[in-house]
Amino acid sequence: MEALTASQRETVRRILTRMRDRPGPLLEILHGIQDHLGFVPGAAVPLIAAELNLSRAEVHGVVTFYHHFRHTPPGRHIVQICRAESCQSMGAEGLAEHAMRRLGVEFQETTADGAFSLHPVYCLGNCACSPAVMIDGELYGRVTPARLDELLAQREPSK
């Protein structure tokens, strides 16, 4: 397990100090860490456990239960493609295959140049405008393969 850098450690400490006294704080803390660091480093788990008087196993169990929390640093841009039924009815499977071909990665992977991480998502609540894609928190509807190419190119013009 990679050790935390000094600044990562400082960030984790700051979030713990701010949130530890809130009721049921663990998810809030994990969100705070991921929002700041981009992922939840394994080396943060013992710090969190000690602060909340939990076992490392309990904290690890929570981090790994939720799909939202990442265990490794993500790419510069996070691309989520909806795989749920509504989007499937409008061609989401083909869109996902197109994205994988274009980026040269599978779901849950990051491109070699660190530009894009590709993730599946199970409903973005945009089912009247399927298929839906979210990139860095921005929602897009009725996304065709050509439109997806445009959206990716807007973020990394060289790709």
Partner: peptide, 11 residues
């Protein structure tokens, strides 16, 4: 936690 595909009324 409106997770059902096809639903967006909560949102």
């Amino acid at each position: 936690d409106e997770g059902d595909s096809g639903t967006f009324s909560d949102r």
